[in-house]
């Protein structure tokens, strides 16, 4: 069977850093939408989503209902895997190694180790290097992003404040990451080593980040995106793409809102198109003012 002319190195390697990081690269410039049923997943795919996040309740409902939020029922995740041809992500609790194993066994395309669910471990995040499936994690600042990448996350998203329909925290988080990278540019090796120590990550990781001027993995914005303009603002601030949670299926017209957010993410730099796609899509989700959420109830403060 073997051809004599075949090159020496034809062996096949799966779940490499290039394939893990690579899928996130393919999602760039796109919108990943939270869905709770196969029917919603189909609406998302039809609107042009690049992936869906399968979960039991969207963040605004988790916020309203309270209690412990956990990984979704495998049957529900399977239903969504079968319903669409685009990648399917699912959430595991922070530090919940076994929920992640279950999601990997279900053959999901990406796991979100997410602060939207109730954390399972108050000391350790999942050691993501041990898994074949890639992970996305949330961050509020550069140190948090690099710690997660050091643990094996192949994609990041800034946290924002999920389920609020309020973009202000998302803006703060992506600005913070960018400003912190900017502040390290041109600094001496000694200063970079000190920064690495302070952030509790290897010097090499800080070095490649500063040299590239951006995180070494794809970075989306999440948490509070409710309108096409919010998505375009995220892209303007340097996001590689956007996650939209409650913003779509809590809007008056989910299909129209979803399609408009997809258009706005591609054409973020073209205000004429943004005006066109923002028109006549119906009311956005109501949203919550940040001052009304006590510090202890902020999801973004979960994880470290």
């Amino acid at each position: 069977m073997k051809k004599r002319s075949a090159p020496a190195k034809t062996k096949v390697a799966k779940s490499t850093w290039a394939t893990k990081r690579g899928l996130a690269q393919m999602l760039k410039g796109g919108v990943i939408m939270d869905v709770v049923t196969p029917a919603e997943a189909k609406i998302a795919e039809e609107a042009g989503a690049v992936a869906v996040m399968a979960l039991e309740r969207v963040p605004s409902d988790i916020r309203r209902d309270g209690g412990v939020a956990r990984m979704s029922d495998p049957d529900m995740i399977k239903g969504i895997l079968d319903a669409v041809s685009i990648p399917v992500m699912a959430k595991a609790r922070i530090g919940h190694h076994v929920e992640a194993q279950i999601l990997e066994a279900l053959d999901v395309d990406y796991i979100d180790e997410s602060e939207v669910l109730t954390p399972a471990d108050d000391r350790f995040h999942i050691n993501k290097h041990e898994f074949r499936v890639p992970f996305v994690c949330g961050c509020k600042d550069l140190g948090e992003a690099l710690r997660r990448i050091n643990e094996g996350a192949a994609m990041m998203r800034t946290k924002g404040e999920a389920g609020t329909g309020n973009i202000v925290e998302a803006v703060r988080h992506i600005r913070t990451v960018s400003e912190q990278i900017e502040a390290l540019k041109g600094q001496s090796e000694k200063r970079l080593r000190a920064a690495a120590k302070e952030m509790r990550v290897p010097y090499e990781l800080v070095k490649v980040t500063v040299k590239a001027g951006r995180l070494p993995v794809v970075n989306f914005v999440a948490g509070g995106i409710a309108t096409p303009a919010d998505a375009a603002l995220s892209m303007w601030l340097g996001a590689d793409g956007v996650f939209v949670g409650s913003g779509i299926f809590k809007a008056k017209n989910p299909a129209k809102t979803a399609a408009a957010i997809v258009q706005a993410t591609t054409h973020w730099s073209n205000p004429t198109i943004l005006a066109e796609v923002s028109a006549g899509i119906g009311e956005a989700m109501k949203g919550i003012e940040m001052r009304t959420i006590p510090e202890s109830e902020r999801l973004s403060s979960r994880g470290w």
Partner: peptide, 16 residues
């Protein structure tokens, strides 16, 4: 589309 399977089947190789 997706002829090789989902993400866990993504791979690297050298081909001719």
């Amino acid at each position: 589309r997706n002829a090789f399977g989902r993400q866990l089947e993504s791979f690297e190789t050298t081909l001719t």
